[in-house]
Design a protein around this nucleic acid. Structure first.
Lengths: 152, 152
DNA sequence: CGAATCTCAGCTTGACTGAGATTG
DNA sequence: CCAATCTCAGTCAAGCTGAGATTC
């Protein structure tokens, strides 16, 4: 091959870079929204996961979020202190402590439902409903494709 | 309004949740790839940004990444220690220290170019080239839409 | 006895704030 | 004199590992 005096073609930005930048900026905007309440975006997100999947233990939440049980335990402790969740021993398996949202937890979520939806709307401005769904689908599909270490 | 005995319709997962989960899993896979070298995914990503934009100071890198100059400085120090970059005072403005990739930095990037591209391929498996481009475009567009705090 | 869950304790990474020196 | 850059120092958030108790 010959040496080419022109500069190498500029490679596209890493997907990891783009995804991380987007995560960073969305989180910043949600933290802005929630700042007056003292609740972080991470805590709000965990609460919304617990609402969608109503019968979970701390370990279940950890598995759903790809973190260690000990990390999830910190988060759960904060939500409990806020009065957003309660935990009670699972009678089926007394090792497990099942998490349930309290009315305060539900109304907190309800209060920010509109503002957060508006934020997501701003984020996806200019896309049709079909394109938004497609974006969402690609996000979850990509996550699934990489959920476990490479086979080879 | 009447009380409806049926459960409330399940809301879709938060975009923030989906984006964060994807970031988490991509980073884990890249860390797997790089583990033998002792370089983190964050450091690798910064290096690739510096390759794409060859004349930057630490402050420029910080602005491009939405972090404080002090945070970027930590990262730059590590890359310098690895021998991947060098810095020299900008003769135009002696406050600035311009970053340049060393041959070692370039060959490190080149070495992982294939494996990282394969990983991104696995992540976007099943999408056409047009769909991949569209996904990339939506990612950067969304970031731009939220880059600054809400006007209202 | 092994595996899962929960808790306590301590560590690390990667962000942050604040302060001071140099330069434009 | 003010603003930008760089460095040093200390703090914080959110992950991690390891160890011990309880339960299946």
């Amino acid at each position: 091959m010959t040496t080419d005096p022109r500069p190498a073609p500029r490679r596209p930005a890493l997907m990891l870079y783009l995804v991380k930048q987007l995560e960073l900026v969305v989180r910043a905007r949600i933290d802005d929204l929630l700042r007056p309440t003292g609740v972080t975006a991470l805590q709000y997100t965990a609460l919304s996961v617990l609402e969608r999947q109503p019968t979970m233990s701390t370990s279940d939440l950890a598995r759903a979020s790809f973190v260690r049980a000990q990390s999830a335990a910190d988060l759960v402790r904060v939500l409990e202190r806020h009065g957003f969740i309660e935990r009670s021993v699972d009678p089926q398996n007394r090792r497990r402590r099942l998490i349930t949202l309290t009315p305060a937890g539900r109304s907190f979520l309800a209060e920010y439902d509109g503002p957060v939806a508006a934020l997501e709307g701003r984020m996806l401005a200019g896309l049709s409903a079909a394109e938004r769904d497609a974006f969402r689908t690609v996000l979850s599909g990509s996550r699934r494709s990489l959920a476990h270490a490479a086979a080879q």
